[in-house]
Design a protein around this nucleic acid. Structure first.
Length: 103
DNA sequence: ATGTTGACCTAGA
DNA sequence: CTCTAGGCCAACA
């Protein structure tokens, strides 16, 4: 049994380019409400290259945080074609990626 | 086993 | 819209 964090990384790896998700979405995909645990998984940041942690934002549309800094996170998101207003995602629902089967 | 922490969420004022 | 308070879950010391 992989840890909750590993599951989070798996889900993140499923996120395609130009798509973003919220911490709550990841938790919901795991049929749980461990929003904080998801954030903790990102904070652990085991594999920043393999896991696109930069595609995870808050439910309010704010960027949240990033290991390399919020600025770098915004740059990456904008590089993927996502419209961002300084520090908030404009059409979050438009770029929202919905996980299919988490089981 | 208990307590603290964290890249959070929701609701109420 | 902004601010405050409570809750929620897993990982770690």
């Amino acid at each position: 049994m992989k840890t909750f964090n590993e599951l989070c990384y798996d889900l993140l790896k499923q996120i395609p380019e130009g798509k973003v998700v919220t911490y709550g979405d990841i938790a919901h995909a795991l049929n749980c409400k461990a929003y904080q645990a998801v954030g903790n998984a990102m904070a652990n940041n085991p594999n920043l290259i393999i896991v696109p942690c930069h595609r995870v934002v808050k439910s309010t549309g704010e960027i949240g945080q990033y290991a390399l800094g919020v600025t770098r996170k915004v740059e990456l998101l904008k590089s993927e074609g996502i419209e961002i207003d300084q520090r908030k995602v404009k059409n979050l629902d438009k770029y929202r990626f919905q996980f299919l089967n988490s089981f």
